[in-house]
Write a protein that binds this DNA or RNA. Structure first.
Lengths: 215, 215
DNA sequence: ACAGGAAATGAACATTGTTCAAGAGTTATT
DNA sequence: AATAACTCTTGAACAATGTTCATTTCCTGT
């Protein structure tokens, strides 16, 4: 007989199952009964471990974000080892890590940032936003090493804008993900964005701006 | 007694109701029974007019995309009338139109591009992607008037990258939409992006790039 | 061995999308 | 006018789901 799992171990098992379900069939595939069946417990027990499916989903997202962060840092470390310190190359490596991550998580990624499950993303006691900030910080670190003329606030803003832009390109690109050449189109856009962005920063464009927000 | 509505008029009524429901409560608020009740028909009749709720949702999205396109064109026309032909200002005006549109459609916008309802956005016989292309074309038009050194393909790519970037910034910004200063942060990022992007294009950065896609 | 509590269970409930047989209404034909 | 053929509407019924909770089972300390 297998040793009975304690609460934490069973939670872990549930999360592994949940991640697989999400990856395979997206948000709609995360069902309480399926989890219970695959984990060898009852529906009620799932609700004993987690308040509701939202909490399960959030927990899975947490781990995904963590792994995405690790992937980014790993990519940076790899370039470091190769002695690459060029900002454009490093940013492209970050973007590459992100694209690979997305491609490796076709089902769970759509619900990762645009978390649309039940209620509109309540702030949550957890550090959801904190993990996103960590990702921004990695990009900001690359920008800092790039020696652009940016103060800390401005650099943070640029990092968020750049990262969000890459995210937007990937998102838009995968809406109609029927074609396989779509992947190529995405990467072309990213290369263009990063190239133009870096050159724009080098020109100091980040400072020359006026408030033009329309009412 | 009010004249009975024919099929088309009733479809119209259903779509108006559906749009309101989506705007007020998001995707989960689009329920067959609510629509039926508010339209004064039976549940079955809703399914007589539309194959399923997905089709209703898609139809609503179509109209939203149309209106978004009109908003963009209107913004361009306004600037035209004011004699503004500066590319950066025009792009910012486009982005402003987009941001205003998003703010005006808090419930329906999240499901507009990332259409996650049932199946993964099947290509659909409709012109969903075509409407998105129209929006890209508007941006491409602005870039063309900007006299950057871009051939047609490259300009189309830049337009898509730029528009998707703006979309990404708005998307990321509204994930944690608790704060009202978030709106300001979004616009700052957009200004930075557009400013840097335009300056980067002016430097011809769109050409100086190498294939660096990681495996 | 037994009491007390903690955890697991799964039947039951509420809500949903969707279907479809039956009925109501409309139009064409004789 | 009467009837037939057709279309549209209805709402009850079904299946799938998230969630709850009274009951049962299991474990632990004495």
């Amino acid at each position: 007989m297998g040793m009975a799992l304690n609460k934490e171990e069973m939670s872990e098992k549930v999360l592994v199952i949940a991640e697989t379900l999400l990856n395979e069939g997206g948000m709609d595939n995360l069902k309480a009964r399926t989890i219970a069946e695959q984990a060898g417990i009852s529906v009620g027990s799932v609700y004993n471990l987690f308040a509701d499916l939202d909490e399960v989903h959030r927990a899975v997202n947490m781990r995904l974000l963590d792994r995405l962060g690790v992937a980014g840092l790993t990519a940076m470390a790899d370039l470091e080892r190769q002695g690459v310190s060029d900002a454009e190359h490093r940013i492209l490596a970050m973007a590459g890590a992100y694209v690979r991550f997305v491609e490796a998580h076709p089902g769970s990624w759509p619900a990762l940032l645009a978390f649309n499950r039940r209620r509109a993303t309540l702030p949550g006691p957890d550090s959801y936003q904190a993990r996103l900030d960590e990702l921004f910080d990695i990009v900001a670190g690359v920008l800092k090493a790039g020696n652009f003329e940016l103060d800390d606030d401005r650099r943070a803003l640029a990092a968020r804008a750049l990262w969000s832009s890459v995210h937007g390109i990937v998102t838009s690109g995968y809406v109609a993900k029927s074609d396989s050449r779509q992947a190529d189109e995405i990467w072309q856009q990213i290369e263009l964005l990063v190239g133009v962005f870096v050159r724009g920063l080098e020109r100091g464009g980040a400072f020359a701006h006026a408030r033009t927000k329309p009412v």
